[in-house]
């Protein structure tokens, strides 16, 4: 493939460059015409609010249309360390939320991962997938009410059934602290089982079969295969599921409303309910915004980090 030396060398045509860039420029312009409509809506409704909030954080703005707003400096930011009324709301909610997130995170593996592994081993079953995915058609609100229906004391269908079968001795009370803490993640895990299963299953399906076959031929046991072959190659799926769970369960809201968190049930008052009531019900808008920011910005940074990691592993 030697290039003959006597071939006339063609000089690159000079005027071609500006012409190309003109075409490119028009391409960029028309690309932006396609991008702009949705991008403007996205930026205005997702990114701009983050900045709109900033000046409000330093005031005592109580309502959305508050006529009188006074600057208060950094008071809203330090309130969580100094102000008693805020601490009484925020700290128990934070504790409950963290417990909820941790338990919810384990349900991803209890439901999603084990179902995905099962499907992977016996082959994809469309009918079973249909059933596992069905709870995702339920709204968060309906999930919360289903929890009440199943595990309300005295009247819960699940309670009555489990009592009759002799599995539990005492009725579970969904409105109690432990009841809410354990049943709610279970219900949410049940609802998202199909979604998490799809994430893990797609991770499993992307593993090159050669590596699995090789491990089988080499006589690796199932557990060895799981921990040495499957999991390392499914890492992007794990990270994706972690990100989704972290961001999603910190702002769980609908299920809590169904449990009566916005009025009667203090056990279901997680952080999202605190932010919501501060903003919409008890006239502490600026405080609510500040608390939300203080809670979620570290989380967002963690999320971005995880996202970066996932993409690096994937490509």
């Amino acid at each position: 493939m030697e290039v003959p030396a006597n071939l006339p060398t063609v000089q690159p045509i000079k005027p071609a460059k500006p012409k190309l860039s003109k075409m490119q420029r028009s391409r960029i312009r028309s690309d932006w015409a396609f991008i702009a409509p949705q991008f403007i809506i996205f930026v205005v409704l997702t990114i701009v609010p983050l900045f709109v909030a900033i000046p409000i954080l330093f005031t005592d703005k109580a309502q959305f249309n508050d006529p009188q707003v006074n600057p208060v400096g950094w008071k809203n930011f330090t309130a969580v360390f100094t102000e008693r009324s805020v601490q009484d709301d925020y700290l128990p909610a934070l504790q409950k939320t963290v417990i909820f997130v941790l338990l919810n995170y384990t349900t991803i593996y209890i439901f999603g991962l084990s179902l995905a592994l099962l499907m992977y081993e016996v082959g994809f079953k469309g009918g079973f997938f249909t059933i596992v995915y069905m709870p995702l058609m339920l709204s968060g609100l309906a999930t919360g009410y289903a929890a009440v229906m199943l595990f309300a004391q005295e009247t819960g269908t699940g309670n009555l059934l489990l009592m009759k079968a002799g599995i539990i001795k005492e009725q579970i009370n969904i409105y109690s602290a432990t009841g809410t803490a354990f049943i709610l993640p279970l219900m949410v895990g049940w609802r998202y089982a199909g979604y998490n299963m799809a994430i893990f299953l797609s991770g499993l399906l992307s593993i090159p079969t050669e590596t699995i076959e090789a491990s089988v031929v080499d006589g690796a046991s199932y557990w060895q295969r799981l921990f040495r072959i499957y999991f390392p190659q499914m890492l992007p799926s794990f990270i994706l599921a972690t990100t989704m769970c972290l961001i999603g369960s910190f702002s769980v809201f609908d299920e809590l409303v169904a449990l009566g968190a916005t009025y009667v049930n203090p056990e279901a008052k997680l952080l999202s309910i605190i932010f919501f009531t501060y903003g919409f019900q008890i006239d502490r808008l600026a405080m609510g915004m500040t608390l939300a920011l203080e809670t979620f910005v570290p989380l967002m940074l963690l999320g971005i980090l995880l996202q970066r990691l996932q993409r690096r592993l994937q490509y």
Partner: peptide, 17 residues
């Protein structure tokens, strides 16, 4: 970024907007 911005973080300022 949308994936890592929790809805509860932006709902108050978005409503304000």
């Amino acid at each position: 970024l949308q994936m890592v911005i929790p809805i509860m973080l932006i709902i108050l300022p978005q409503y304000q907007l």
